[in-house]
């Protein structure tokens, strides 16, 4: 028995390797996705290794060097300094931690709430389904930022609250998406076969339907990371996000706007980084769409 297990494992290992290489083949065809992955990975690495990369780590906090303020980009401060004389590059490396964290967590939380509800609404249907879907419609009909502002208004501005606020406005999209997927998958023969084998609805739902609905969800999550970053940045810009002096890209843009246009570097560089993160994530999302399509074929 042990032997068969071993060989079975070997075979499945080979299968995984093959699908891995097949994935690389598909991705390689898509140069833009490669660029996206490259850019996003370097951003991530930059944020992870911020303490080592940043030339002035103490500038990420509330350090003040008024003598150094408003220095344009130079060898000493490659991206210049802000009104407090803090090194912008250092603040970007640390600020990315907050921005990207918000960008990753918001869609994930939104997706897990939304998918569960969508799955229940789509598969069980009837009254529960109607209630869920109508609630979703209500949420969709209110501009998300308004709800987010409300939540932050109640709980006060902080990174945690931004993530919380945006997560609860994010789920309805996922409910919609999953609901649609489930309704079409429900009619597939393999779902009927599973019922004919005696499976209960929970098993059919989570083990037959959900795995097939995952590719569009993943694609949507990747695309949403971009939007979440933008939204978090927007809240930061409005002063409702992270409180100064904690660095955050949106907040940095917002604080620099007073000194535009002559002192352009305070806003431009964090802005460029927001753009890079969102853009690279979108490229990855497009690439993933191709990749996941192929796997089903």
């Amino acid at each position: 028995m042990g032997k068969t297990n071993y060989s079975t494992k070997l075979i499945s290992c080979r299968a995984y390797l093959e699908s891995f290489f097949r994935g690389i083949y598909v991705i390689r065809k898509n140069t833009l996705a490669i660029v996206g992955i490259g850019v996003f990975l370097s951003l991530l690495l930059m944020c992870i290794f911020a303490p080592w990369l940043a030339p002035y780590p103490e500038d990420a906090g509330d350090a003040i060097h008024l003598s150094q303020s408003f220095k344009s980009p130079s060898m000493l401060h490659i991206l210049g300094t802000d009104q407090m004389g803090r090194d912008i590059f250092s603040r970007i490396t640390f600020g990315g931690r907050n921005t990207l964290l918000a960008g990753l967590i918001i869609p994930l939380v939104g997706a897990s709430i939304g998918c569960t509800l969508g799955l229940i609404a789509g598969y069980i249907g009837r009254r529960i389904g109607s209630v869920i879907m109508r609630t979703t419609d209500v949420f969709l009909s209110i501009p998300p930022l308004i709800i987010a502002l409300l939540v932050i208004g109640v709980f006060g501005p902080s990174l945690k609250n931004i993530i919380f606020a945006l997560s609860i406005v994010w789920w309805p999209w996922y409910t919609r998406l999953v609901h649609g997927e489930v309704i079409s998958l429900r009619e597939e023969t393999f779902v009927e076969s599973s019922r004919l084998l005696g499976a209960k609805s929970t098993r059919t739902m989570f083990s037959e339907i959900l795995p097939n609905a995952i590719p569009p969800i993943i694609v949507k999550i990747t695309l949403d990371i971009g939007y979440a970053i933008l939204n978090a940045a927007a809240l930061g810009f409005l002063g409702l996000g992270v409180l100064p002096p904690t660095p955050e890209w949106g907040l940095m843009v917002s604080q620099g706007r007073l000194y535009l246009p002559s002192i352009w570097w305070i806003t431009t560089f964090p802005g460029i980084f927001i753009f890079l993160a969102v853009f690279s994530i979108n490229l990855i999302g497009d690439g993933l769409r191709d990749l996941l399509d192929v796997e089903v074929m």
Partner: peptide
């Protein structure tokens, strides 16, 4: 379509 494409 009678076999779930995501299962071995």
């Amino acid at each position: 379509s009678s076999l779930n494409p995501r299962k071995k």
